[in-house]
Design a protein around this nucleic acid. Structure first.
Length: 156
DNA sequence: GCCAACGTTGGC
DNA sequence: GCCAACGTTGGC
């Protein structure tokens, strides 16, 4: 069992969307390192910290779970999609996605709060200039953050 | 809207 | 293979 932080712009897919839909394909990843994490390292049932980025208050909005193996991202073949990639083909898909299932909401833990905890200082999302949309999370970081999500909140 | 940091592209 | 130019990300 491994753990991941996955960024999503809430304007596109928010934790509320995930909660409503139950499960979504994590489409739109167009970075090879992030793709390779999905293809090579993610396993069914891995824990996901659902992170809101590109919004007024970025931070961790809830928990998810990896719900499928990696498969071809449909948006790369759709000319109407902003994620269309003319250089990809169904026979040789360049971009992949996994499905992510909703697990729980929690207290929203803002980025500014994550930065306050020395225990989290090594997290990818906190590194200067880090733009990677999928980053590994250690078991210790996972435990620390899920406790934070549970504060003043009895979702569990 | 600004801008630092990063990844990709393409000429050479 | 180098590297400048460009586009994108994402916090602020």
């Amino acid at each position: 069992m491994a753990y991941w932080l996955m960024k999503s712009e809430p304007d596109e897919v928010s934790i509320d969307d995930l909660a409503r839909l139950g499960r979504v394909p994590w489409f739109g990843v167009r970075n090879y390192q992030a793709r390779n994490f999905m293809r090579d390292a993610m396993k069914l049932g891995d824990g996901v910290l659902f992170y809101h980025s590109g919004c007024a208050v970025p931070g961790i909005a809830g928990l998810g779970q990896v719900a499928s193996a990696a498969y071809a991202d449909a948006t790369q073949f759709d000319p109407a999609s902003p994620y269309f990639d003319a250089k990809s083909s169904p026979g040789q898909p360049r971009w992949l996605n996994v499905d992510v299932a909703f697990v729980a909401r929690g207290r929203f833990v803002p980025l500014t709060e994550l930065r306050c905890h020395p225990a989290l200082a090594a997290m990818g999302v906190l590194q200067k200039g880090s733009r990677l949309s999928i980053t590994p999370v250690t078991a210790e970081e996972w435990q620390f953050i899920t406790r934070k999500l549970m504060e003043l909140n009895d979702v569990f």
